[in-house]
Nucleic acid binder design. Structure first.
Lengths: 231, 231
DNA sequence: TTATTATATTTGTCCTACAAATGAAATTAA
DNA sequence: TTAATTTCATTTGTAGGACAAATATAATAA
């Protein structure tokens, strides 16, 4: 049999002991239905059961601790905890490390999200929210051009208005896409800087008296430059 | 001054050495503009600079390695790598550990996402995609009721059709919401099991010959039960 | 110049040790 | 017996030493 015939001849997975212990622990927790608050075996016991050094166990536990999956109470043992779903993403969000593929995906994700939120915005908007939006608009220097910070403030407020905490925190994830847009990955002419047929003011007006469908249509136009470069 | 006057008297942040080294490293990478492929100082050097034991450094590095942020090449040193954005979330996705708050947020996120994808679906759909959707529908046992697996297969295919890899992988994150729905968190009467005014068949029909707006309207009706319990 | 050998480097893994605080057990006092 | 005090075992956090294995580099030999 020739090499070619072997097809996908991938390098054998060369997992370190730490990797394998991490996996073992996760499987162990899942299969035994561990729930937040449940006590974990201590480090030495785990090390002995898995036949590895305590060092390796601690390196694996260190990972789970970072994710918030387990909590170590010094001198009292470890317990299961409630992991922070977005913690892992936020830790990794170093713009200098993001690949172009990631940037593209995030950028598209943002378009999807902004087209998806109108129902939530109209259902959960409050007078307070609308006032804050007005405040944000009033602080915009120029009516025709919008700076990066102003973009973030406005759209960020929209995310916040969804009333969904996870979504709100997503702004951190979406942030690089504003850079992305401003550095003109999709559009070298920086059209974002020119007049937009639908301004933030228009969007707020619709949010006050319009309907979700109207808002979405306006948002689509507002983002039309980016949609055009993708679709 | 009374205790009450002190206001938010939070517990002093009691970070472990490992936590602090982890943070220091992240800041160090960011401030020095480390990019994928760049060589890192070796473990001993880091330990000496930070004045901690090599153990602590390794526990911190173990975390960054898990996130894909750094890569260790045995006996050749470490280099910066491109972290996997969703890796952190996926590792943490143990349904038994998710809080009700998280479940609610994820559930709402799913509604937002499905309302946001029509433009992408219509822009990127292929004959192949539509055929696969037909195939999925043909395997549905009953026309009026839909099982959890069938739900996942259908909606998962939609995510895939967006052509966005990150979005596609999001299905893993959204998965628990199907359980969520089926266990009736929002709706104890399990209305999901009764006839839906808009079926998967209807959605596919629109996807073939309709418009994004029509599709979205239909999707809203398809998901109306859940929207009703939220909005 | 080329080929071979020796050396230094660096991560992965294991081991030992100990401080510190907690909770439980044992002891003493009432 | 009950209450208060002391002792003790437990367990994580941190430090430091040791060595294998393989790589890259330097040194040596052909």
């Amino acid at each position: 049999m020739s090499i070619a015939k072997l097809g996908a001849l991938n390098p054998l997975e060369t997992l370190s002991m730490t990797d394998r212990v991490e996996n073992s622990l996760r499987v162990y927790f899942t299969e035994n239905g561990f729930k937040p608050g449940d006590a974990l075996p201590n480090e030495v016991e785990i090390a002995q059961k898995l036949n590895v050094s305590r060092n390796v166990v601690r390196e694996a536990l260190s990972r789970l601790r970072m994710l918030g999956m387990v909590e170590a109470r010094p001198r009292r043992g470890m317990i299961m905890a409630q992991p922070d779903l977005l913690g892992g993403i936020e830790k990794v969000l170093n713009p200098a490390l993001l690949s172009q593929d990631n940037l593209k995906d995030i950028f598209e994700m943002r378009l999807i999200l902004e087209m998806g939120i109108p129902e939530f915005l109209f259902a959960r908007k409050t007078e307070q929210d609308l006032n804050e939006l007005d405040e944000i608009l009033s602080q915009q220097k120029d009516v025709t051009t919008v700076s990066k910070d102003e973009e973030i403030a406005f759209h960020g407020k929209l995310y916040e208005m969804t009333g969904n905490d996870m979504f709100k925190r997503f702004q951190t994830l979406l942030m690089p896409t504003f850079d992305h847009v401003f550095t003109g990955y999709y559009d070298n002419d920086k059209k974002i800087e020119i007049a937009n047929p639908i301004t933030h003011h228009d969007l707020v007006a619709i949010l006050k008296t319009g309907t979700p469908d109207e808002f979405r249509k306006a948002m689509y136009t507002h983002l039309a430059v980016y949609f055009a470069s993708i679709l």
